[in-house]
Amino acid sequence: MLLKDKKADLVIGYERGSSKRRARPVVIRADKDVDRLIFDDTCGPSLVPFARKALRATPLGTRVAVVAKGCDGRALVQQIAEGQFKRDQVVMIGVGCNGVTDHRRGASGEKREASCERCRYPNPPVYDVFVGEPVAAGTGDEFAGVAEFEKLASADRWAWFEHELGKCIRCYACRNACPMCYCEECVVDQTNPLWLGKSAERPDTTLFHLVRALHTAGRCVDCGACERACPLGVRLALLNKRLEREVRERFGYTAGLSMEATPALATYSEEDKQEFML
């Protein structure tokens, strides 16, 4: 309908993938292909990196419609706040999301992704059309996992991260899947200076994940794309979640809710807490 009315020049959404348990991104250009679009609990991969590419590659005036579940909608909002494209370039097709399936852990509908379990934004904060009914947000503490982990002693936390990040093979699938990792050249690929060694040695790996967490602090929408993309199942989102809480508690900012607000780490308040300063 959007295509027919020329309200959008193309639509980015999901279509059925190679198996019943998988969905994959698709670009629809003609009205006749619209029926290929699906949305269900298999529609995990973030569409935002595709959308960003499409939006930036197309000539000005092109309108791109994007199917946006809660987290993807927030990522789009965040990217608009970061000037990656203009609001009027994108038509947001809002969908309510009940969470996507953790296909590593169970069959369709059985086990939701960890990030979906704690999700508080199943519906996009901004949309142009909404398909279906909004989904009620979950309750309970989204930071419970973080709080649980923080009970561990410093050395135990270190041991856990050592073990967890020890699995990393530096394939960068997490980064490539992340809707907020859109640098032209990622810091790990820069050679002058060589901030991060190319090896899979522990300090370099740890540093890579630390830097990624810092770079997405106040921007991460906890879509879970990184963990979903990781071939080794590294639990990457824990640190991100901790920083999400930090930014919300300390600076009163939640990523992906406002297109106007200055991102938390690009601004300040004179009243920011500074109990840690000597």
């Binding site: 270190w158 740890t206 967490a213 810092l214 640190l239 920083l243 930090e246 780490l265 300040y268 920011d272």
Partner: peptide, 18 residues
Amino acid sequence: YIARRKFATLKTALEFIG
């Protein structure tokens, strides 16, 4: 002031991972 925000997040991240 801008630095203070960076420091707070950096310190939190470092201490969180141990």
